[in-house]
């Protein structure tokens, strides 16, 4: 029985932040197949290219969880969420959930973000450790995909 590593997507323009998240996931012993994109634009292009990616990454596409930064050039986190709403109507990605991953927490923004039913959590950069990350992630996804 070969275990397939669940695919996830990290969208953040800051390489350091991506590294920190990856390392914390590793420390939490969450073994994922991780895609990384530098901003919303890149991520949308990646997801829109659905058919090709399904072929290119058999059993690894689409991601089941997206870590999404807010402040990014070109398409920021908020704009990505808007686009993602329409994207969900055209491609088979309903099971994919989003966890925000940002250094700031503006109440009015947060309210708007959490209104999307596919947004399942809000992580503040630097304010969590491997243990709490694990709890949060496992609360929203079914990790044990065969």
């Amino acid at each position: 029985m070969s275990r397939i590593k669940p695919p996830i997507l990290i969208i953040d323009d800051d390489e350091v932040d991506r590294y920190i998240l990856k390392r914390l996931l590793k420390e939490a012993e969450l073994d994922f197949n991780i895609f990384e994109k530098q901003d919303g634009q890149e991520a949308l292009e990646f997801l829109e290219n659905y058919e090709a990616n399904v072929k290119n990454y058999p059993d690894e596409f689409p991601p089941i969880l997206i870590f999404l930064d807010i402040n990014m050039p070109r398409v920021n986190g908020l704009q990505f969420l808007e686009e993602f709403v329409t994207l969900r109507l055209t491609i088979e990605i309903e099971s994919c959930v989003v966890m925000m991953f940002s250094s700031s927490e503006r109440e009015e923004e947060k309210e708007k973000i959490m209104a999307h039913d596919f947004v399942k959590g809000y992580l503040v950069k630097g304010a969590f450790d491997a243990e709490s990350l694990k709890d949060k992630v496992l609360a929203v996804i079914d990790y044990l995909i065969e």
């Binding site: 932040d17 914390l24 402040n71 250094s103 630097g126």
Partner: peptide
């Protein structure tokens, strides 16, 4: 808001 965000970002990164 933006300044504090951009100031906080490298700080929290360095902390981790």
């Amino acid at each position: 808001y933006r300044a504090s965000h951009d100031l906080k970002s490298p700080l929290s990164g360095a902390k981790s």
